[in-house]
Nucleic acid binder design. Structure first.
Lengths: 145, 145
DNA sequence: CCTGCTGTAACTGTTATTGTTACAGTAAGG
DNA sequence: CCTTACTGTAACAATAACAGTTACAGCAGG
């Protein structure tokens, strides 16, 4: 296992917040979330910082500080999370420029780019169809099943 | 840009082979392909070795050695290439096991796995619809456009 | 002013990837 | 059988991403 798990961590964070949100508590700390994810609070804070930039959570400073969901779990799609964690495209083009003197070297990048864009859009469509509320429901169902 | 470009390299390799295949020449060397991709022949040979394991190309040793497409370009889908280069899943689950004492920690992995599998399948559907022959056609069109 | 948590820099260990050199293995063709 | 030209692969370096960790300044509620 080497691939990045930022998507998983971010969804876990939001799902956990959605759970306590439903229970009426609204301000939670990175330490509490870190306990559920079983990692370091700084990792959680880094994830939350990104989620905040995207407007998915809000932060409160000072004593009694902590985090709150900025939207209802039903209105947060996994696509929103994907946008936060995936700066890099699914597939990378060549590291260096291919040989422009070769017909394939010259024309393949636009051709590939088109395919890659279509593929990314398929991913986005899939992730747009699932909300944090859906994940929470499935999570609680899986737990008891 | 850091993401892996193995998909791009493998498709480039096959597309180049499809081009010379159409021109009647059938045995090509890693050096020739490396010139088009503008990289080291060993990188190409590594890619070709993987493609060979999947049965997409065949190799000939000795003097006059080289590589040949094992199938017609129309019958090689980008999905076949994806299977070759993508050992790792699109999204990774947690690195360590999440807290099993927490309802979210306990149930989120099966819930996420389901979403991730669906997403991967969307990617596969997209890539299944495009062949190396399609890429070659688009590549030559892009070159002149 | 205390207190508790955030925000973030800095550093480590691990791992993937690309590029590179080097060299043994292999078989076609004279 | 020997030359030749290319494959197959190990080994290594450089780069970069990532997860995890420590440390500490900043902030605001009470």
């Amino acid at each position: 296992m080497s691939a990045n798990s930022r998507m998983t961590v971010a969804v876990h964070v939001l799902t956990w917040m959605a759970l306590v949100h439903g229970r009426g508590r609204d301000v939670v700390t990175s330490d509490q979330i870190a306990t559920s994810v079983a990692t370091n609070p700084v990792v959680i804070r880094r994830s939350l910082a990104d989620l905040r930039k995207a407007g998915l959570v809000t932060v409160r400073h000072g004593a009694g500080a902590g985090w709150t969901l900025a939207r209802e779990p039903e209105s947060i799609a996994l696509l929103d999370v994907y946008r936060v964690v995936h700066a890099e495209p699914l597939f990378a083009l060549h590291h260096g420029e291919p040989n422009q003197a070769c017909p394939v070297g010259r024309g393949i990048q636009p051709a590939l780019r088109r395919v890659y864009v279509d593929t990314e859009e398929a991913v986005r469509r899939e992730l747009a169809a699932v909300s944090i509320a859906d994940v929470l429901r499935d999570t609680l169902a899986a737990r008891s099943g």
